[in-house]
Design a binder for these strands. Sequence first.
DNA 1: GCCTATAAATGGAACGTTCCAATAAATCAA
DNA 2: TTGATTTATTGGAACGTTCCATTTATAGGC
Lengths: 352, 352
Amino acid sequence: MASRAKATIFDIAREAGVSKSTVSLVLQGSGLIRPETAVKVRKAIEDVGYVYNRGAANLRKAHSNVIGMVINDLTNPFFAELAVGMERVFQSAGIVPFIANTAENPVRQEEVLKSLMEQGVAGLIVSPARGTTPGAFRRLETAGVPIVFAMRRLPESRIPVIAPDNHRGAYLATAHLIGKGHRRLVFFGGSPDLVVYHERLGGFREACETLGIAARDVLIIEGETSRKGGIACLETALTMAEPPTAALCFNDAVAFGALLALRKRGLEPGADFAVVGFDDVVEAEHYMPALTSVAVDSAGLGERAAHVMLKMIQSRTTRAEDHIGAVNLVVRESCGPDRRTRNRPAGPGVTV
Amino acid sequence: MASRAKATIFDIAREAGVSKSTVSLVLQGSGLIRPETAVKVRKAIEDVGYVYNRGAANLRKAHSNVIGMVINDLTNPFFAELAVGMERVFQSAGIVPFIANTAENPVRQEEVLKSLMEQGVAGLIVSPARGTTPGAFRRLETAGVPIVFAMRRLPESRIPVIAPDNHRGAYLATAHLIGKGHRRLVFFGGSPDLVVYHERLGGFREACETLGIAARDVLIIEGETSRKGGIACLETALTMAEPPTAALCFNDAVAFGALLALRKRGLEPGADFAVVGFDDVVEAEHYMPALTSVAVDSAGLGERAAHVMLKMIQSRTTRAEDHIGAVNLVVRESCGPDRRTRNRPAGPGVTV
DNA sequence: GCCTATAAATGGAACGTTCCAATAAATCAA
DNA sequence: TTGATTTATTGGAACGTTCCATTTATAGGC
């Protein structure tokens, strides 16, 4: 069915009795060729089992049609959702994005970026790895490759960013907690090497200040941005002299960890200690108790990022507006019932 | 710093005062060039901001260095783990795998495969989308591209498969349930269009038969392989005349759904109804109650798949042995305590 | 000092496309 | 018929690399 060596447009040309140029035209769907000829050529293509060589084509063509998606943690469902959103719009544009994972490792990110460049990508959507140095994208920028950052930004970069309104989200969540009567609050997880951390923490602080929480009652406990980190944060919070009664968590993973640690100690999340998450991953709704969280619409942000990228490519520019996505707090059960009419026995006591 | 048009080896050659061939040799790390010359060339490369054009190179070279990873559901943490395992070994081989998502859609899969082929991939690791037609990979096979299936297989294909021992895993889990005293069992979730379904269901059935469960006491409820599916399965199970007391779930997502539905009804997972999952995703350990599940070591399977692929590429063959990975049951809390000495108040009552 | 062996560097052809300019064929105006 | 116009098709050069066969420089043997 297929000869040993891979077929080229010359083979097709011979098979169909036309010239290579004609075949090329057919391949590109040009309207210049006579319909009957096109049919003949297409049949030949089928017969010889031809596969288009995009590398060769890119040698002549201005731009390739691959877009790279560089993601810092594939394992986080949050980013998977982002990816799904992007793919939705790229698919309808007839392009297949290639995803590469950096596993939160700047060195790996360097390799990935290099590889993608060598492949001749038309554009890059990147959620930069933690600890990315400011110069990491210089190479790409001078090469004129359109880049957009998704979800995360770099300290002093001019690359357009698509991200949720972290400050506002944190403010909203904190205000909710305060509205529930909490007066001693803590921020769980994350660390200052992440711009997002400052944004969320900033919202938390602003809410505390403007809503009248005394500075000595607002606590901050850094930690890993994972379940494990959340568990650790809660442990240290509860061993304090005057423990807080509510936590805003850096993200849902941290929140899940906190919930878990609470349960382990025999405390009732929501009733004995309020926790709110950030990101509102699908799981949040299904947790026990269901997690109150700041929804950021990651799939929507993914779509937006893809659109911006498409626009940049087509207008061959490397600049674009930032886009800060709306957020909203979805209230579930992890901050306790609205009414203060609970009457349950005290938890079995703190055991550590 | 960088001129407008992108630099080629000719530009480097001029800059360094050598020939293009010399530059090419340096690029390939050939030992033929004098060290001082190499240094000079490398400096020039840096100066002009050169980026290697792999497309052009592949025009001459036998094989490219891209490997594609085609995954049916990026959203499932299970597959993310698989991807992570693969990346680990590819990274140490100096190659960057490109991941593409098919979202369980055969049409999308077709596009993805086509795009990857055109890109000239050296090999493909694929977890085929549900409903993939038997001929979907013919094109690739005749083109001689090495392929390995991971986690899933196609009904009558000769492509090598790396997958867990689903049959044995299901057997183990079922035996555990029976050992706990359960006599009326159900299999939750999945549908017959998946080979994996038959394998797992087969193990379940065999265990029931050989361990003396009457045929009329083994139930099967098909459903989506998601939390939602699990919820639905449990609902229909409990409305039966003689409800089962234990379920083996198609995967952990289904199991989480079942656990959730149980809680919603005020039943205590483990005590009132036993559930065991399959895959042992990281989350299983952290669930409430912690989920007993069949561990398949997906990262390990990913590594194995990557190794097999590397071997195939280097020995330029398209055949390889299947590899069935060991599984083991990790017992946690979702099947109840070992001792039957529990004494807790009945749950707060069924509210739905 | 000459010949040979080795080491280092080079020019040219090839890879599979696209695109432009040019040709061939068909149609039309006179 | 002839020339002009439109419609289809075509050959050739170019894209940025690799690889082979040469050439040039360096060293070694006698």
